[in-house]
Design a protein around this nucleic acid. Structure first.
Length: 461
RNA sequence: UCCCCUGUAGCUCAGUCGGUAGAGCAAGUGGCUGUUAACCACUGGGUCGCAAGUUCGAGUCUUGCCGGGGGAGCCA
């Protein structure tokens, strides 16, 4: 008989036919003469209840089944007389593929803390929460691709290993084949000419610069890949290895960028609501009350767009007591961003036109000479989810900005060439994929929305 | 990297004034004809994170190290 998925069974309009399901036992309850098994196969957060009666062949084996065992169950799908489920399987035979010694199997049929589950990351996908996280993660990935594909954006692959010494977005992990116990030295410095690439190389901290090169040929592009930051960040919002989405549009200015970000977020949220209703219901009930309606609110909302200068004004007039003072020219603190998006507007807020000194060199300088065409999208609960800008496409201005930022324009000759030949206004943004999963699921710690998180002092599994 | 909290049974935690280890759940055994975090009874289960120090005596006090959590910075 052909195996069917639990998701398909639960969607069936009728019962009374034979089925074969394969999955893992979540829990078992024994009574005199019969047992209830709950089997989950990962196709849905819901389990299928299996009833095994004493009279069935091999019942003495069934009695030995415990949480975690992998099984194949063949039997008739019947309407369940009990409460809590529509259907159940009246088992005719149960085959155990693999036992799970109940004295050693760490997952119990009780709530575990996320901290504990992180220590057994190889088993936590078998829990309700992580199964749901991973299904939402999958749906979100697909939504990202379908959004951009529907709009004709070209999915491009930017390098993971890069030899640009200073991309400027954060500390890089070094990539080397040098013998660390015997590093070649020339004039007191490491001789990178002997290294694999003949120069200092590292893992990418952003695909943006290369993305710009491709956008100024193909028009609209996006990247969706892994990104690495060697920052010693110990927070619930940072990973050393995470996934980032970076669209880049040629012939586009900041308002186009903002529109794209807003349309994009609404699309991917709606896609997840539509395709993962059971998982989101679980998150709404167990992780973050009101989650679904807050996502629906955002889909229907118009994002607030304010300038940095207006934001500073709002904060100064707020009457709130902030730990850090608000001063034009300094970066907004987490508490400030939270006030703006959570208290003042209670919806996503796009803050634009930041002072040039607190933003990256590649952002387009405004006519006032003081601010740049940057935008941060702030959302309630997690703060900055998107950072983007219109890029400086004027060659001379960009060279000046590089020099003022302490960068050597010669090392960016290829980046500057784009401005030298057929330069066009262009704009793009970066979206932290895991932060977005956090936002959609309500999960508080970013380490719990990626299967195997990499953080300082932690790279197990 | 900084500040605060924390580390005791498989898990979640309690442990008073320094006097030699407790609960709930889980697990094991038995019971129960429809369970839903099943229920009832009984049983087993400990390098108190690691190292040093103070003390007649340390889970408890002191110092150092390591891990975990929350917040900050950096950022996505």
């Amino acid at each position: 008989m052909k195996r069917v998925l639990v998701r398909e069974i639960l969607q069936s309009d009728t019962s009374g036919f034979d089925v074969l399901v394969k999955g893992w036992v979540r829990t078992k309850r024994d009574s005199k003469g019969f047992s209830f098994l709950e089997v989950n196969d990962g196709s849905t957060i819901k389990n299928i209840q299996v009833v095994a009666e004493e009279s069935m062949p091999g019942y003495d084996e069934v009695l030995k089944i415990s949480t975690g065992c992998s099984v194949a169950v063949e039997g008739e799908l019947v309407d369940s007389p009990g409460k809590g489920q529509k259907y159940e399987i009246k088992a005719r035979s149960i085959h155990v593929y693999g036992w799970a010694d109940s004295e050693r199997y760490p997952l119990q049929k009780k709530n575990h803390t996320f901290e504990f589950l992180r220590e057994i990351a190889h088993l936590r996908p078998r829990t309700n929460t992580f199964g749901a996280v991973l299904r939402v993660r999958n749906a979100l990935s697909y939504a990202i691709h379908s959004f951009f594909q529907n709009k004709g954006f070209v999915y491009v692959h930017t390098p993971i290993i890069t030899a640009s010494d200073c991309e400027g977005a954060g500390e890089m992990f070094r990539v080397t084949t040098l013998d660390l116990k015997n590093v070649p030295i020339v004039n007191g410095d490491i001789d990178y000419e002997e290294d694999f690439f003949g120069k200092k190389a590292g893992l990418t901290v952003s695909g943006q610069l290369e993305g710009e090169l491709l956008a100024t040929a193909l028009g609209n592009i996006y990247t969706f890949g892994p990104t690495f930051r060697a920052e010693n960040s110990n927070t619930s919002r940072h990973l050393a290895e995470f996934w980032m989405v970076e669209p880049e549009m040629a012939f586009a200015e900041l308002p186009d960028d903002i529109s794209l970000a807003e349309e994009f977020l609404k699309y991917i949220f709606k896609y997840c609501i539509d395709t993962c209703p059971d998982d989101l219901e679980f998150f709404d009930m167990r992780i973050q009350k009101g989650l679904i309606s807050s996502l629906e609110d955002i889909i229907l909302s118009n994002f607030e767009i304010i300038t940095y200068t207006e934001a500073v004004d709002i904060l100064k007039k707020s009457g709130e007591k902030f730990e850090y003072p608000v001063e034009w020219g300094t970066d907004l603190q987490s508490e400030h961003e939270r006030y703006i998006t959570e208290k003042k507007f209670n919806k996503p807020v796009v803050v634009t036109d930041y002072p040039k000194d607190i933003k990256a060199f590649y952002m387009k300088l405004n006519d006032d000479g003081k601010t740049v065409r940057a935008m941060d999208v702030l959302v309630p609960r997690i703060g900055e989810i998107i950072g983007g800008s219109e890029r400086e496409y004027r060659y001379d201005v960009l060279v000046d900005r590089m020099k003022n930022s302490g960068l050597n324009p010669e090392e960016y000759w290829w980046y500057l060439d784009i401005r030298r030949f057929g330069s066009v206004p262009h704009a793009g943004f970066g979206l932290g994929f895991e932060r977005t999963v956090q936002y959609i699921t309500g999960m508080q710690n970013i380490r719990d929305v990626i299967p195997f998180p990499r953080t300082p002092k932690s790279a197990d599994f």
